[in-house]
Design a protein around this nucleic acid. Structure first.
Lengths: 277, 277
DNA sequence: TGACCTGTGAAAATCCTGTGAACGCAGGGG
DNA sequence: CCCCTGCGTTCACAGGATTTTCACAGGTCA
């Protein structure tokens, strides 16, 4: 179940992009400081103490790679060249102590995107990594994340639409964004304020019922195309939770048909107060 | 039509190494040395002694801009910001004497791609400019020359034209580029901003309706030559999607005429949000 | 039961897209 | 050098689609 990550708050006008970065360096001091900052920024970072085959880098789906050639010794140039050739879309930043113009030029010509000289402020290192990743993303705007499956439904970001065995739900933009947010946070209870903030992009006015209204619209469309499944659950006094589950037709008001939760919701599982329709 | 031009802005760059660069600096010494090298490398360089409006930069179809903020004085930040916002695809490199980490970070976050500190070797400056431009060019690795088929239409990049059984659609340059972009992204919903950015080469001004107007022109020409097919679909509040499909003349308001898709896009082919006519 | 919440339906307010036409510019002829 | 023509931009409007807002009804909790 590897979902969860990816651009969470990237619903729309978000400049903050979470970056997947790998670092090959052994400078523990620098690593510590940098690590602190990247964590704060919410980046996904992986520290490696030695070169790993480019093939594995591919599997990591990185945005950028920061490496200190000193760690690799003689193979550094060869390694750099192979990485740049195999992963033209990966942002490669070299970070080293001293260096000559010739070395820097050579690296840049090989395909390296930036060369930072230590000592350097971690903030600048991050800004440069961001800059490189930004450019990289701009070139390939359509390497979209695969469709997201939920119950009988398939959510396709590239079409701004959700489908149930081939049939579109005909969601409007807002409806889609709301659904996407919910689905990305599957299992989590989201408060109205949070939802509004992330889908609408600004703070919710007191007493605004928009979220409720859109939840209703979603439920209607979902119900029509995929009856037999419950997707959006209401948590009284709190908010909503997305969790696709086949409708256990317990007409009896019984004490909840305790579905095996996926765990993400942990202790909230039993708070199930009422399930839509 | 005497087009036969070269690479316009965004679509299809030839993979020549020649770089179109503009420099805003008044350091004659550096300019001279750099100029010599760029000439040798065959770059097209334009030296400006002061800021020029971003609109004119657009017209220059640059790959990169190297500028010394000292020349602009107080307006430097504002200018940088405007340029980066308006030309997201332009490589922007700042080259200055002394600077602080804070300044560099600010610039990089604004959208600047690299910050070089003088004194610097012109060779390194060039290598960095290349590195920045390289990312940009990689955008459209579209090397395929073969004609692109879509419905009854044949799109020939080599002719800057589209045909329907032999007859040309008489597309103008912009129309063709728009059509090509759409067709290359067949099945995907493209937002207006994206379209504008990629076809026009710079950021769309708020409220610009050019994309809509060109979509209309395309639809008209397509309709005239190939009635019976729907090519461009509107996604309300989002953008447009190209997906050729025979017109299912369901005049009946019936509950969806579930056409089995033509197959190109797997099982989701049918289902329109709104189909323009 | 009373105070709150949430689900609904529908009206009202906004926003978005399709269009037709006017403008301005640049190139080609005359 | 001036006029004509093709193209790309901008505008303003009309018809719809989508969002918000409201007033209520029905549930939930203490």
């Amino acid at each position: 179940m590897g979902r969860a990550f990816i651009n969470h708050g990237a619903l729309h006008l978000n400049s903050q992009q979470t970056i997947r970065l790998a670092v090959i360096d052994d400078d523990s001091g620098f690593m510590t400081v940098l690590g602190k900052r990247t964590d704060t920024a919410g980046w996904q970072k992986r520290v490696l103490s030695s070169a790993i085959p480019p093939e594995e880098l591919v599997a990591m789906k990185l945005h950028a790679l920061l490496l200190n050639p000193a760690v690799l010794g003689d193979e550094a140039w060869d390694y750099l060249e192979r990485v740049c050739r195999m992963l033209p879309d990966l942002g490669v930043i070299v970070c080293t102590g001293s260096s000559t113009v010739a070395q820097r030029v050579r690296a840049l010509r090989i395909g390296v995107d930036d060369w930072i000289t230590k000592p350097c402020h971690p903030e600048e290192a991050m800004a440069r990594i961001e800059a490189v990743s930004r450019r990289r993303r701009r070139s390939h705007p359509n390497v979209e994340v695969g469709p997201l499956m939920a119950g009988e439904m398939e959510i396709r970001a590239d079409r701004f639409q959700a489908f149930v065995n081939g049939g579109s739900l005909d969601l409007t933009r807002r409806e889609f964004e709301l659904l996407q947010l919910l689905a990305e946070s599957r299992g989590q209870v989201l408060e109205r304020e949070t939802i509004y903030q992330r889908v609408w992009g600004y703070a919710m006015a007191h007493g605004d019922r928009s979220v409720d209204v859109f939840i209703r619209k979603l439920r209607q469309k979902l119900e029509r195309r995929s009856p037999g499944w419950g997707y959006i659950h209401t948590h009284f006094g709190v908010g909503y939770r997305f969790d696709p589950e086949p409708v256990t037709d317990t007409t009896l008001h019984g004490p909840e048909a305790h579905m095996p939760g996926d765990g993400t919701g942990a202790s909230l599982e039993d708070q199930e107060l009422h399930v839509s329709t």
